[in-house]
C-alpha cells in the first residue's frame, strides 16, 4: 500500500515542468517570433533579481522589458538593435554574457592565463624530475679496496 502511494507521488513529478514567468497574454501570436523573443530574453538579465533572466523573473520590470522586447520585434527591429537599445539604457550589465572588451579581458582570458602558468609549472617540474641524475664519480683505489673487503666478509 505504502509502495503504491510512493509510486503515485513519484509519478506526480512526471507532470512537473519548469515554471516560466511569462504570462500567456504576453506571448506573440507568431511562434517563430515568440521563440526569437524567448531566446533573446534568456540572455537579458532581470535588473531586480539579477541572477535570473527576464524570461524567468516575476519582477514587474522584467515583465515590462519582456513586453518591450516583443513590441520591438513586432516593429521589425533585429536582435542586435534591441540589445543595443537596452545596453544604451542599462549598460552591459543587462547582458547575461559579458561582452569581450578591454574591461573584461581579465574575465575572459584570466582562466587561460592561469592554466598556462599551471602547465608551465607542471612541465618544468616533470622535466626536472625525469632528467637522469649525474653519474657518480668513480671510486678511488682506496675505496675499491675497502668495498672489496666488506663484500668478502659478507657485510658489516
Amino acid at each position: 500500500m505504502k509502495r503504491i502511494l510512493l509510486l503515485a507521488v513519484l509519478l506526480l513529478f512526471h507532470f512537473v515542468t519548469p515554471a516560466w514567468a511569462v504570462d500567456p497574454d504576453e506571448k506573440l501570436k507568431n511562434p517563430a517570433l515568440e521563440l526569437r523573443a524567448e531566446r533573446l530574453g534568456d540572455g537579458l538579465r532581470c535588473l531586480v533579481c539579477q541572477g535570473e533572466s527576464i524570461e524567468q523573473s516575476n519582477a514587474g520590470l522584467a515583465k515590462d522589458i519582456r513586453v518591450i522586447v516583443r513590441q520591438r520585434i513586432m516593429e521589425g527591429e533585429t536582435n542586435a538593435q534591441i540589445k543595443r537599445y537596452l545596453v544604451s539604457r542599462y549598460g552591459d550589465f543587462i547582458l547575461l554574457d559579458p561582452p569581450f572588451q578591454d574591461r573584461t579581458l581579465v574575465l575572459w582570458l584570466g582562466p587561460f592565463a592561469l592554466l598556462l602558468v599551471g602547465l608551465l609549472g607542471a612541465g618544468g617540474y616533470l622535466r626536472r624530475r625525469s632528467r637522469s641524475p649525474t653519474p657518480p664519480t668513480p671510486l678511488t683505489a682506496e675505496e675499491k679496496r675497502r668495498l672489496d673487503g666488506v663484500m668478502r666478509q659478507g657485510g658489516a
Binding site: 514587474g60 520590470l61 515583465k63 515590462d64 522589458i65 513586453v67 518591450i68 513590441q71 537596452l86 539604457r89
Partner: peptide, 9 residues
C-alpha cells in the same frame, strides 16, 4: 505597464 519611458530612462 509596459513602462517604455521608465525603461528608456
Amino acid at each position: 505597464s509596459p513602462a517604455r519611458t521608465v525603461v528608456a530612462w
